[in-house]
Amino acid sequence: MNRRAFLGWGAAGFVALCSGVAVSLAAVVRYLVPSVFYEPPQSFKIGDPADFPFGPPTFLPDEKIFVFRDREKGFAVASAVCTHLGCTVAYFQSDQRFHCPCHGSVFGPNGTVQHGPAPRALNWFEITQARDGQLLVDKDKVVPPSYRLMV
């Protein structure tokens, strides 16, 4: 083996070694990302329209959503997860605003930030009526606050 061949094979071997290490590291990182999430589905039924009263919103603790029902405008669903650090906000009927207990963020009636460190408005989710008549919420579909479902 001459010098040129030795250096060529050596360089090729070094590149192969580095690639092997890089691929192994990528595989380790990929291993840590779960392939299946055993978490509640993002799209779910919340019950019959008649279950929800007019007036103050209904808070569903497991889904972390507020279900608003208005006589003229219909249904709307707001996220109860603060956009700052993920605490669960509370809705105060007295001032019709959302208050976050963690860092004092306050969101207006349509979810916009009025006070505090929250970077974005609260999300509103799509709500539709399933074939069996139940209300269907999809948290993967964010809609503008003006979105309403008339039943």
């Binding site: 990182v29 840590l32 990302v33 779960p34 999430f37 055993y38 978490e39 993920g86």
Partner: peptide, 16 residues
Amino acid sequence: GQVREILLGGHTVGEA
């Protein structure tokens, strides 16, 4: 976001 997902093994603080 990805670091949090790897750390939590999910999107929220749960069993994983």
